[in-house]
């Protein structure tokens, strides 16, 4: 509960704002998890990335890290504009079967997501971590985002959901990096974004190949390889 104490002792509007944005990141993760339509998932992903960029901006402004402005701009360009538009383009070429790839009941899965996020939050809360850039709750929320992203990939059976799940995992990691490592070597951060770019290309390519072969975006028939 030490976190509790320190934050109550020294509240500030900026960190409050940061927390609200971090909560938005998690909320959009849940929304992605629930969303039936691939298109709305991609839009939610764009919104989540926008929140992450906003967080980067907040950190840049409060701690005066010039590089972070660049990083926020790059991630805005890449994750809010480029990645969603690439996936949207793939979707545009596809007609039909965009909805409802839940393997289990949504309500059940939402309860699982709640349990997972509570787990993530408590694990991180127990860590002796103090951050100068962002309040620790953001890290706990990032952990929850990562876990729910995993669940999303597991319980959805279409390539778009799975790709979006992976990208939102990266968003969670981005938030964690803002909390833990606001001064991480710039080159590593840029490399991270570059990787994301390449991942988009690979995912986009594979999605298209997959659709070309199977004429569907569902992954239900991808179970030939077993054992």
């Amino acid at each position: 509960m030490h976190v509790f104490a320190t934050l109550v002792a020294a509240p500030s509007t900026v960190t409050d704002g940061a927390e609200t944005v971090a909560v938005l990141v998690l909320l959009s993760q849940y929304a992605m998890f629930r969303a039936g339509l691939s298109r709305s998932q991609v839009r939610l992903y764009a919104f989540q990335s926008l929140s992450v960029s906003a967080l980067a901006l907040i950190v840049a402004a409060t701690r005066h890290i010039g590089e972070l402005y660049v990083l926020a701009g790059l991630s805005l360009l890449l994750k809010v504009i480029l990645v969603p538009s690439v996936i949207m383009r793939v979707l545009k070429e596809v007609r039909g079967d965009l909805a409802g790839s839940h393997r289990f009941g949504v309500a059940t899965m939402v309860l699982c997501a709640i349990v997972l996020s509570v787990f993530g939050v408590f694990v991180v809360e127990g860590m002796p971590i103090h951050s100068k850039s962002l309040p620790l709750p953001a890290l706990a929320l990032a952990a929850a985002v990562v876990l729910v992203a995993f669940l999303l990939v597991i319980v959805r059976s279409d390539v778009v959901s799975q790709a979006v799940g992976f990208f939102s995992l990266e968003n969670g990691v981005s938030v964690a990096s803002l909390v833990l490592a606001a001064g991480l070597p710039f080159i590593a951060e840029v490399a991270f974004l570059f990787d994301l770019l390449v991942a988009v290309v690979v995912f986009g390519l594979l999605m298209r190949v997959h659709h070309g072969r199977a004429a569907t975006l569902s992954t239900r028939h991808l179970e030939r390889l077993r054992g």
């Binding site: 976190v3 104490a5 998690l26 849940y30 309040p135 709750p137």
Partner: peptide, 13 residues
Amino acid sequence: IAVLAVLVLYLVG
């Protein structure tokens, strides 16, 4: 959302 509210409150104070 309601659970998240409690969770956030616990985290943030």
